[in-house]
Design a protein around this nucleic acid. Structure first.
Lengths: 143, 143
DNA sequence: GTAACTGTAATTACTATAATAACAGTAAGC
DNA sequence: GCTTACTGTTATTATAGTAATTACAGTTAC
């Protein structure tokens, strides 16, 4: 799985955590431990689907434009990584006469597709604010 | 996800399909469309957990040593790809003072871990012989 | 008009994956 | 016992996917 999903989740949780719900790509990148350009790429995609707003120019940055209790990890997965649990490498060869070789790619494709549907169902149960609560709980555990 | 899982599934389905439940690594590799050495590596691992037997020397090869109705895709996933849905890249940094940065890696780790548990539950419902039936059904669809 | 931002594309570096080659070990059949 | 046909395993190389970096055009605040 592509790590843009992780970056999207982390970024939104950070925005939800900050009192003004706002941060620049540089600030987010430092928190996430990646490059600002990568954060802008991911956030730019989330902006197009309305989860955040971007403000250009001095004093600009990204801000939440959705309620953290309503955005689920399934939403973010769909946006950043849909289709990524299926490996690119594919078994079999449709041109072979053997029934197994000729149909395995399609059958495995269906298996991965249904597996992803289950994954999305699970991710739908977790919201951005839920993630923030988990972070708080993890922090409390540390003591 | 690593494609060794796909190779394992395809190989066992092929063995279940063949009347004598036996094939050499070269024969399997041709069917799966990969290199015989790769097949041997995957099968060698399945041998250690008892799903297949290997016979060295002339006339040798791999043969099923388990009942196709009893081996599930979860078994094969565990053997070949356990842990692979979590990306290697990891967000955050435990040494940062920010609560979000300091705990995100652990929280995301737990999310991926539970997601994998759900995936395994789903794969447990699908057996090798079930896969063979799906292949037959896909073949019938082609007409 | 300058400084501080985002948007986006292009390039480079790195890492994971898959293919290939090589050879030791083993069993069958002559 | 020698040859042939296999597996077992490791090392090397090629390819592809992922992430970092650079660069610069566009936008807004002051």
């Amino acid at each position: 799985m592509n790590s843009e999903f992780t970056i999207a989740v982390h970024s939104l949780v950070l925005l939800a955590y900050k009192p003004d719900h706002m941060a620049t790509s540089e600030e987010i990148a430092r928190n996430v431990c990646t490059h600002p350009a990568r954060v802008r790429k991911v956030m730019s995609s989330l902006r197009k689907s309305g989860y955040v707003e971007a403000k250009e120019g001095t004093g600009g940055g990204f801000m939440l434009s959705s309620r953290p209790e309503e955005v689920t990890l399934a939403d973010l997965y769909m946006e950043t990584s849909y289709g990524s649990i299926k490996p690119t490498w594919c078994s079999g060869d449709d041109s072979q006469e053997c029934m197994v070789a000729g149909n395995m790619a399609a059958v495995m494709g269906a298996v991965f597709s249904e597996a992803e549907a289950h994954l999305i169902d699970y991710l739908r149960q977790i919201t951005v604010s839920g993630m923030l609560e988990r972070v708080r709980a993890a922090q409390a555990e540390k003591r």
